Simulated scan of single mutants.
Amino acid sequence: MEKLAIFDVDFTLTKKETLMELYKFVVFKNFKNIRFLPRALFSGLMYSIKVYDEKRVKESFLKFIDKIHEEDLDNLAKEYYSKVLKKILYKDAIDMIKKLKDEGCKIYLISASPEFYLKELYDIKEVDVIIGTKFRVENGFFARQMDGLNCKGEEKVRRLKEYLKENNIEVDYKNSYMFSDSLSDKPLLDLVGNPYLINYKKKNDFKVLNWK
């Protein structure tokens, strides 16, 4: 049986929200992309008043890369990782990944953020599996449509178990770990014997680690 060390990404491994950082990076590359900011703000407002769900918010927000060729999207993701994403990782998070890998855990990153750029985190040699929100590519072009459900909450557990079943992996959950900054990950936190919240300030029933 395998021991897992599962990590959320945004504000667990990273100091900032990765999708917004991607947008800022695209604006920096070409300031004309600032024209998509009103759409992003509107989508956020609609979500805050419960008119949009997270799926619709993400599909709307990603207009700034709509219909980009798959190869160009891959190149953008690689550049974003090297210039931004790898520089906003918590050192303590990377140290924990290395420590638990040395102790025999398989390292899983499971996030609601888009998988098309999260996959660049395989650059961290200890990472074994990355599961994120999927988006469709149609005829070689990014379609801005979510492929399946937003990978959050119970969906993270479903996607994890789907992967384990497909690969005939049995897990020692009692001796596995889960790290997240949010109680939205309670389904995964409850799944393992060693759950931790990261930089969490409110009262809760989990152990809290403060990462920098």
Rank of each mutant, 00 (worst) to 15 (best):
M1A: 13
M1L: 10
L4N: 01
L4R: 00
I6A: 00
D10H: 01
T12E: 04
T12R: 02
T12S: 02
E17G: 05
M20C: 10
E21P: 04
L22G: 00
L22P: 00
F25T: 05
V27Y: 05
K29I: 08
F31D: 05
K32P: 09
N33D: 01
I34M: 08
R35C: 13
P38M: 02
R39L: 15
L41Y: 05
S43I: 03
L45K: 09
L45E: 04
M46G: 06
M46R: 11
M46Q: 12
S48M: 13
K50G: 03
V51N: 12
D53M: 09
S60N: 14
K63E: 15
K63P: 10
F64H: 09
D66R: 14
D66Y: 15
L76M: 09
A77H: 06
K78N: 13
S82T: 13
K83P: 11
K87V: 09
L89K: 04
K91G: 06
D95N: 15
I97M: 15
K99G: 04
E103V: 14
E103Q: 15
E103G: 12
S113V: 05
P114S: 06
E115I: 15
E120I: 01
I124R: 04
K125L: 10
K125T: 11
E126W: 06
E126F: 04
D128W: 08
D128H: 11
V129W: 06
T133W: 00
R136N: 15
V137N: 14
N139S: 14
N139G: 12
G140R: 13
F142Y: 14
F142I: 09
A143H: 14
Q145N: 14
G148E: 03
C151H: 08
K152W: 14
K152C: 12
K156L: 08
K156M: 10
V157T: 04
V157C: 06
V157H: 01
R158I: 11
L160P: 08
Y163Q: 06
L164E: 02
E170S: 13
D172T: 07
N175R: 06
Y177F: 14
M178V: 15
F179W: 06
F179K: 02
D181K: 02
S182T: 12
S182Y: 11
K186H: 03
P187L: 00
D190W: 08
L191W: 09
G193N: 09
P195T: 04
Y196V: 00
Y196M: 00
I198A: 00
K201T: 09
D205W: 08
K207V: 02
K207A: 08
K207T: 07
K207Q: 11
V208M: 02
V208K: 05
